[in-house]
Write a protein that binds this DNA or RNA. Structure first.
Lengths: 150, 150
DNA sequence: GTTAGTGCAAACTGTTTGCAAGTAT
DNA sequence: ATACTTGCAAACAGTTTGCACTAAC
């Protein structure tokens, strides 16, 4: 007899792994569903624990990692700012990082990097572009006008 | 009386800071002079301690940081690979990161990012582009031919 | 009732720092 | 002789993990 398992076909009959729906997981998922920009772990934790909810830091780390591993989320890292997470499945895009509030935004345009001259024998697999600057919120009314705190 | 100091003009008379030439510093400087690509702290340490020399990790961190602060070196960070350092003063360029050996190379071309559509009210200050792939050394003779270890 | 998920604290990794001993000037 | 540098070990920040307890199913 063959019991279907997720993972490799023909694997030994095992109890199928079941993913449970807990309060914490529902919250974390909804944080990403509601987010309109990539989030750092800190931002996820902040959003998740807004209200009277309580979610531990390790749970955020663990579940976000699980979501990355199952493909629901994509990660990228920014210099000095650590990792950011966003829902997968979007068109290829790049990011804008605000030097003032440290928030990160999506850029819809993908520059064509194919044009970049690569040394012979170098094989490009992917490219990553980040523009840094001042975001709309922080840019209001001049150069030194502080908006929402980071 | 006014004793010239480095730093802000008109500063209080202080003993001018003198930078000493030690064996360790000479070695670290020469590592960068000889390097033909950006180096991580580990790579600097490895190169510096090749031969019978001895340089401690903290000295590498400390002196490399000093060189960055005085402008001799530039830093940039790559996702998952940490910080890389290279001599300053080169034309604007980007980097290529080998997925196999983890080494980083300079790319001479600078893509024009001016063309990238930025949302109104976003001010671009700088941009950073990294291409990832397989470098010439690791690309020799096919896809899975291992070259020098990372 | 089982077993996956959570929270806490301890472990880890990469980097920085305090301080006593070493060394360039 | 002076005070900048070094090396070691302890301190740190960010992330991961072991384990007993809690809660889905």
């Amino acid at each position: 007899m063959t019991i279907p398992t997720r993972g490799e076909p023909g694997a030994m009959p095992t109890t199928p792994v079941q993913e449970r729906s807990t309060r914490q997981r529902r919250i974390i998922r909804s944080v990403f569903d509601d987010a309109e920009r990539p989030l750092s772990i800190e931002e996820v934790l902040d959003a998740a624990t807004r209200g009277r909810h309580t979610v531990s830091l390790s749970t955020v780390y663990r579940f976000v990692r699980a979501l990355v591993e199952d493909g629901s989320l994509s990660v990228f890292e920014l210099p000095g700012l650590g990792a950011f997470y966003e829902l997968s499945g979007k068109a290829h895009h790049h990011h804008f990082s605000c030097l003032h509030c440290k928030r990160v935004y999506e850029l819809n345009d993908c520059i064509s990097v194919d044009k970049l001259a690569l040394p012979t024998d170098f094989q490009a697999v992917s490219h990553d572009l980040t523009v840094a600057g001042v975001c709309a919120a922080c840019n209001v009314g001049g150069t030194s006008r502080a908006q929402r705190a980071p």
